[in-house]
Nucleic acid binder design. Structure first.
Length: 273
DNA sequence: CTCCAGGCTTTAG
DNA sequence: CTAAAGCATGGA
């Protein structure tokens, strides 16, 4: 089937290049996007954006299409912060994805102290090595592996795929989730979920915020990484250096809009829009 | 060569 | 409690 949606607040390049997803690649006139064991072809003609896929319900939710992003940007602009207004103008096609929870956990463990191209490579090799082979009209691909498949590999395996010192974090967290499941992460508010996530190996405050935001739709999360730190100093005139306090500064200001604001700012800053 | 990338764990004070 | 060292890898 084919999703057909207004392109004003749904621009493939913005949605995919803003740093929330690591599994996509150029395909035909747009991109091929992978999530868990599904894929779709995402492209736009400038007026409408289209997603060709087999599971329309999944990708309708995945791309957060029930939400009014025009209204969100309107609220954000009411803060009257020039840098933020500019970011909304330039990155206005972003939508926050509702991604697979376990995939987010491992993806953002890998992301720590790392750069996006390399993160994509590591994740891609993990899928090829351990993921189930899926056939699609757009060609075969590999699903993101289950926690039990990930747990079956020793740290050395992940090091051989270029994961560096994060190797044991992947093995240990996978072993824990394979044993405990993820029920214990459901039904929590943002603060409770973050505290729980931090108890997993390789997950600290920033990675937990990303998992809350992209995996659990906790939009009051505001991940503070090296780019946000730089932006906080250069564009908000901030003087704090403690990331926990910088996080409190932004979440206190933006509340339920924090996650959206964070993505507009991060994308505009990092890609020099 | 050094510095940096969507930081975290461990250890020291 | 906070501060800092150590950590794999690859590109600039």
């Amino acid at each position: 089937m084919k999703i057909d949606y207004d392109a004003t607040y749904f621009v493939p390049r913005d949605v995919l290049e803003c740093g929330q997803i690591f599994r996509f690649e150029p395909y035909r006139e747009g991109y091929r996007v992978f999530s868990a064991d599904k894929d779709c072809y995402l492209y736009t003609d400038g007026r409408r954006t289209y997603a060709e896929c087999e599971d329309g319900d999944y990708f309708y939710n995945y791309f957060d299409l029930a939400r009014d992003y025009g209204g969100i940007i309107e609220k954000i602009k009411s803060f009257k912060i020039p840098v933020l207004d500019e970011a909304c103008e330039k990155a206005g096609g972003i939508r926050l994805l509702n991604q697979n929870r376990e995939e987010m956990i491992y993806s953002f463990i890998i992301s720590q102290n790392n750069n996006i191209p390399r993160i994509k490579g590591i994740i891609s090799r993990i899928c090829e090595g351990l993921g189930q082979k899926i056939s699609s009209p757009r060609g075969d691909f590999y699903a993101f592996p289950s926690s039990s498949a990930l747990a079956a590999q020793p740290p050395e395996y992940y090091k051989s795929l270029g994961a560096g010192y994060r190797d044991a974090f992947i093995s240990e967290t996978a072993a824990r989730i394979a044993a405990e499941g993820t029920k214990c992460l459901e039904g929590l508010d943002c603060g409770e979920l973050k505290q729980k996530l931090i108890t997993y190996k390789g997950i600290g405050p920033k990675v937990a915020d990303c998992i809350c935001l992209f995996g659990f739709a906790k939009r009051e999360a505001f991940p503070v990484d090296t780019w946000i730190e730089k932006l906080y100093r250069e564009d908000f005139g901030g003087t704090l250096t403690d990331r926990k306090k910088i996080n409190a500064y932004f979440t206190g200001m933006f509340g339920e809009l924090s996650g959206y604001v964070q993505q507009y700012l991060f994308y505009a800053k990092r890609s020099k829009l």
